[in-house]
């Protein structure tokens, strides 16, 4: 792949590639924009730049991740995602076969999620000025009437739930990238969560908060929600689903799984009397079978996220500023 004006042939190639895999009607019209009638209701929009190393990892690749990331950000407002716009930045010399794999995977993920890729763009930068490929995706979705889900809605006594195993993605990426050679391969959990969300709000319309604990992991997400809502949180270590192989890998690496990224999990906060129904609805969905109620929202002027440990102690899950540098003198 070469960049610049001489790359007519390349542009041709890419456009063929995209047309082959992304056969959306709007995209195929060949315009620089997508024209569509907005559906009735409130729209949400979200954008995310995806950079990841390695590009291909157990359980996904940057193509599927770029779809899931933005679909999930849209879905966390309780919305049904409709359209995606995709921007590629490619580094000169990036293998075409890899690009084909990524585009194909992106297309497959979008199709599976039922969202249409309606517009896109591709740029090629000089060798050394990119890291293979970066993908920016922008999504639009529509929120059903009567649904107000936002990070500032958590109220004392609300229950906190997670949709499944925590920490899979981050550990999978790290062990693949650094070639750590763990005995059991850990798969990224990368997945589109909007159908899970749809069945959750169908059961519990007054869901208070939803968020996907991506970068910074569960601990960071809970801290964000606690601050946004002006509350504290009390969770129980023993109720947080963590696979034993993830826990073992984290122990070896010295990482705290609660700070490790997820790409197919959500945190939900709902009124206490709805918690069991919500849990049942989540468990009935393939992406929520391992869901768990992990704790409660509490009143706390200091907005601490506190965790009862397996030993009955209690520690504060900090909102870390640095890179988990040891703090023990």
């Amino acid at each position: 792949l070469s960049h610049g004006s001489g790359g007519r042939a390349m542009a041709q190639l890419i456009s063929e590639l995209f047309q082959r895999h992304l056969d959306d009607e709007l995209l195929l019209q060949g315009n620089d924009q997508a024209l569509f009638q907005p559906p009735p209701g409130r729209l949400v929009m979200s954008t995310d730049g995806h950079v990841i190393s390695p590009l291909f990892f157990p359980g996904g690749d940057i193509g599927s991740l770029a779809v899931h990331g933005t679909v999930n950000d849209v879905a966390m407002a309780g919305a049904r995602p409709l359209y995606l716009a995709v921007g590629f930045i490619l580094e000169e010399g990036f293998p075409l076969a890899d690009l084909a794999r990524i585009v194909e995977s992106l297309a497959r993920a979008a199709k599976a999620a039922g969202v249409a890729v309606v517009t896109g763009d591709t740029k090629v930068v000089e060798r050394g000025k990119g890291d293979g490929v970066f993908i920016t995706t922008t999504g639009i979705g529509v929120v059903p009437d009567g649904i107000t889900i936002s990070g500032d809605q958590a109220r004392p006594n609300d229950r906190i739930l997670v949709s499944g195993w925590i920490g899979d993605h981050g550990v999978a990426i790290l062990s693949q990238r650094e070639n750590l050679g763990f005995e059991t391969q850990i798969q990224s959990d990368s997945a589109a969560l909007h159908t899970l969300v749809a069945s959750m709000i169908a059961t519990v319309p007054d869901l208070h908060c939803l968020r996907d604990p991506t970068r910074g992991g569960l601990a960071t997400t809970l801290n964000e929600l606690a601050h946004q809502s002006g509350v504290g949180m009390q969770i129980r270590e023993t109720d947080i689903p963590i696979r034993s192989e993830v826990a073992a890998a984290c122990e070896l690496l010295g990482l705290d799984p609660l700070y490790v990224a997820n790409e197919g999990k959500l945190v939900a906060i709902c009124p206490p009397e709805q918690a069991t129904r919500l849990l049942a609805a989540m468990r009935a969905h393939p992406l929520g079978v391992d869901a768990s109620i992990i704790g409660e929202v509490v009143e706390d002027p200091q907005h601490f996220v506190q965790m009862e440990t397996g030993f009955g102690g209690s520690r504060i899950l900090d909102w870390l500023v640095g890179e988990q540098l040891p703090r023990i003198c």
């Binding site: 070896l252 690496l253 010295g254 988990q324 040891p326």
Partner: peptide, 9 residues
């Protein structure tokens, strides 16, 4: 180096 950060402690 402290391989594993806090874990090395």
């Amino acid at each position: 180096a402290m391989p594993g950060g806090t874990r090395a402690i």
